[in-house]
């Protein structure tokens, strides 16, 4: 019998920290907990708990799937850092997924507008579709004024701002992209700070 991959799934781009363990495409365990500005404190204990419950060690993880944003500027880095660390230590494949795709996966509506507040009237938004149990991206993730973006959409969609990801949908979709060089893994912020912008202008 083919041994199933032990996959660790991480997303920290929203107020909720999400960790899941899957063997193949089957979810074994998951954690989805509110923790505003707190994910850096909880991620390692949660991970240790989950591994010990499944009676496996960190070095047994064969693959890591991580939400790389867009989303919380502080939060997204925590998950990406942990994914990077495990990918490097275990020398295993790391795949990235949009954090908005994780959010969208919680709904089975035909069209889902996943939305994470970016303040000042803006949000990170991505439009996803569910068709025959197959999740697809309809409109790539943007940072935009909420009203302007909604006006540009000409279809019926459900807005999702909160929801526990459905891992099987993500794992079976084509929304994962493989990281070729673990050192190149960075979050997708969709926005840069003024300091970075100024630095780029100077160069």
């Amino acid at each position: 019998m083919k041994r199933s991959l032990k996959r660790l799934i991480i997303d920290t781009a929203t107020d909720y920290i999400f960790l899941a363990l899957a063997f193949g495409s089957e979810e074994i365990d998951s954690i989805y907990e509110l923790g505003v500005n707190n994910h850096s404190v909880t991620i390692i204990p949660f991970l240790e708990d989950m591994l010990s419950k499944a009676k496996i060690k960190l070095r047994d993880i064969d693959q890591v799937i991580v939400g790389i944003g867009p989303g919380s500027y502080t939060g997204v880095r925590i998950g990406v850092t942990v994914a990077k660390m495990i990918g490097y230590l275990n020398n295993v494949d790391v795949y990235t997924v949009s954090s908005l795709a994780f959010l969208a996966s919680s709904s089975n509506s035909k069209y889902v507008l996943a939305m994470i507040d970016a303040r000042r009237g803006n949000a990170f938004m991505g439009l996803y579709g569910n068709c025959n149990n197959n999740m697809k991206i309809i409109n790539s993730d943007v940072l935009q004024n909420i009203d302007d973006f909604k006006k540009s959409l000409d279809l019926d969609y459900e807005v999702i701002q909160l929801g526990k990801p459905k891992i099987d949908k993500i794992l079976e979709s084509k929304l994962l992209s493989k990281v070729d060089n673990i050192h190149d893994l960075v979050p997708n912020y969709l926005q840069i700070t003024e300091a970075e912008r100024n630095l780029r202008n100077e160069i």
């Binding site: 505003v36 500005n37 919380s72 500027y73 502080t74 939060g75 507040d117 970016a118 303040r119 000042r120 912020y189 926005q191 700070t193 003024e194 300091a195 912008r197 100024n198």
Partner: peptide, 28 residues
């Protein structure tokens, strides 16, 4: 220098935010 989005989590959070020299980040 400008704004760091890390502040958003606090300024737009649920606490009490006191900002000295707020005019330097007024637009945010």
């Amino acid at each position: 220098i400008g704004y760091d989005y890390e502040f958003d989590e606090y300024i737009y959070g649920r606490g009490v935010t006191v900002i000295e020299w707020y005019q330097y980040i007024d637009m945010m």
